[in-house]
Nucleic acid binder design. Sequence first.
DNA 1: CATCTAAATGTTTAAATATTCATTGGATTG
DNA 2: CAATCCAATGAATATTTAAACATTTAGATG
Lengths: 143, 143
Amino acid sequence: MTKSFRQGQILKLIRSGGIFTQDELARALKEVEIDATQVTLSRDMRELGLVKTADGYRQLDRDTPNMVFAGLATEFLQDVRQAQNQVILRTAPGHANSVAVALDDEEWPEIVGTIAGDDTILIICPDTAAAQTLRAKLIALLG
Amino acid sequence: MTKSFRQGQILKLIRSGGIFTQDELARALKEVEIDATQVTLSRDMRELGLVKTADGYRQLDRDTPNMVFAGLATEFLQDVRQAQNQVILRTAPGHANSVAVALDDEEWPEIVGTIAGDDTILIICPDTAAAQTLRAKLIALLG
DNA sequence: CATCTAAATGTTTAAATATTCATTGGATTG
DNA sequence: CAATCCAATGAATATTTAAACATTTAGATG
């Protein structure tokens, strides 16, 4: 079980609502066979840009991926990593290119440009903060 | 010193950034001659829809008032109250109508309709939650 | 393969926030 | 005007979150 898989599950749970504390989230994750301490979740929250509101945790607003890209991502996107102002995506073999094209179409402000190989996409962002935002956005689309 | 004045000041401080805890906010308010305990601030935060992020407290995204309305409000808006799904504005005497017209122009989703008297505007919202959101938005414009 | 490094996570505990219950100071009404 | 109600706030405290530090693990490197 990888970190980005866990974070993907966290986003799913948050979206479905009704999560008010990190302990609550930890319990919800346990139902899905994911063990994580409150401390780990606190860190995940920060990385994913989640905030506590009166009606539970929420993701800070940012524009939503369109259907074409979201569909491709759900099907082929396998991992999302970040280093400095770069984000690296792994896709199913042979699909990097189509995913990258759809991603380019999004014209997100966090993306300066992309380069796709066979199963890897390199994305250049303006800065580290943008890369982090982008990572959170993309993790949400992991299967 | 009224509650909505305090909340207006809170929004100002939050906007200018660099507020990371409620105690910090309390100290900043003291500089402006406003005394409030952490408990009161916790409640204010909730009412105003403020959330804690990695870069300090922030207001949850919602669309921003346009210049015309914002200008009028800054000049004439004096108080904002909420009861159920209704929000009541007090303006300088004789100015309720012009403020209400500008407000209607905003076409906000939180506003079903408005009625203006001489110095009072009644706003009907779809529900209590919308009214609360609207209140927070408007308080930000108080002188 | 031993060693080093860095990311990820855990443990402990401090700090920050929210809740509960109580008080106060207007309005409202009989 | 007393009695009552209610919004606003505070004090004490419980709960939640984050910081500091330690440990583990997987990959790099000699």
